[in-house]
Design a protein around this nucleic acid. Structure first.
Lengths: 120, 120
DNA sequence: CGGCATCCCTCGGGATACTG
DNA sequence: CAGTATCCCGAGGGATGCCG
């Protein structure tokens, strides 16, 4: 069952208004590293170091910042283990998993058509 | 038919590599105004002025820049009519319509869950 | 009406170094 | 290992003005 294109705006006029919750969440998700971090976590729980290696090019600062945003949004759950050396892992919450599922068509499409677009 | 979450990374490792076509296209789409402009055009052809009003908060500079990027990507088609006063309209290309269709689940999801997330 | 040019500045984000 | 703290830069992006 496909959502018709025409209904996209009619059903969700809220997306387009500055400062509304939809825009805030959309900004988080479409932030420079948002999609990549969420997609990386789609494969399952990852530790900090794994996440860094997984998302090529991200700095520690941006990884921390992106994760904190998603944690506050309730999309990612952080778990710290009281061990030495410290171990921390990150996983999607049920809400986050739901979001990633909604993102999957986009990511798949981009991956499939990227060459075509860039080569023009 | 749903794409399993686990396969997302396995199938498309390219997304995660800096500078690859997938990352370039993903950056265009997830640029600050990319999603909004594409979604606005999902409803059909729009004139410049209509687009500006539709996408709340966008400046002329960013609208122009975003549209030029998508035009170069082959996602949006620009048509100028040799009239006075000038009239220009923008519509999605078939490729662009395809992309918007892949984006629709994400937009719909965000609109539906935004309150829940922001109020957190 | 539909832009482009220009100026200006915020702040996203990178590099580096340090800590529990 | 998993971060925090600082410094710093530049491009993304806003405001204004002009033009065909």
């Amino acid at each position: 069952m496909t959502v018709s294109l025409g209904s996209l705006r009619a059903d969700r006029p809220d997306i387009y208004v500055t400062g509304c919750p939809s825009r805030v969440v959309l900004d988080h998700v479409t932030s420079k590293w948002g999609v990549l971090v969420l997609a990386a976590l789609a494969g399952g729980t990852l530790r900090w170091g794994e996440l860094r290696r997984e998302v090529d090019g991200i700095s520690e600062k941006m990884l921390a910042s992106t994760l904190r945003t998603f944690e506050a949004d309730g999309l990612v759950q952080r778990t710290a283990y009281p061990e030495v050396p410290p171990r921390v892992d990150y996983r999607l919450t049920p809400l986050g998993r739901d979001l990633v599922e909604a993102m999957t068509p986009l990511i798949t499409w981009v991956a499939a058509h990227a060459e075509e677009i860039v080569s023009g």
